[in-house]
Design a protein around this nucleic acid. Sequence first.
DNA 1: AGCAAGATCGGT
DNA 2: CCGATCTTGCTG
Length: 173
Amino acid sequence: MRLDRSFYERDVLIVAPELIGKRMIRNTPAGNPSYLITEVEAYRGTEDEASHARFGKTSRNAVMFDTGGLLYVYLIYGMYWMLNIVTGKRGQAQAVLIRGVSDISGPGRIARTLGIDRSFYGEDLVSSERIWIEDHSNIPEYVQQPRIGINYAGEPWKSQPWRYIMVPPSQIS
DNA sequence: AGCAAGATCGGT
DNA sequence: CCGATCTTGCTG
């Protein structure tokens, strides 16, 4: 069943690991593919020096300051769309970057495969007809690591283990 | 105003 | 390790 507002409105450090193992559904004229979420990163508030919210609200990141459950989509390196899910209550400026789904590794390739672009900025996962996330009662194992590509941030932000990676069942000892 | 750098990826 | 490619927000 589709996740509701109350799921997304919690702190990003709670929501991010819980997104691992959930299914993202992409409703298109061609079909209804679903993708298992396998890797995410948490970005937490204006004090997080690795976050786009670190300079406060701007035209690009404005949706991060809105309510949890909305999508934050932005273009990076002129060619890759990044898919993020806003979490927390309005004003908290938190988001989860989707880094891996099913057999797709890398946020840029995910957006390309799912057909995510600027038109998904602000899309609401709670009510959208195009994209949403379902809970299939899957509780996977995961490991935590520092986030990728944020060397510009200072400590402790650079080292926070806010990257969550699903451990395949075959690798659990 | 201009410009360096970016939550990346694929090829060399 | 470098180039693609363009938006962003600072002068990194």
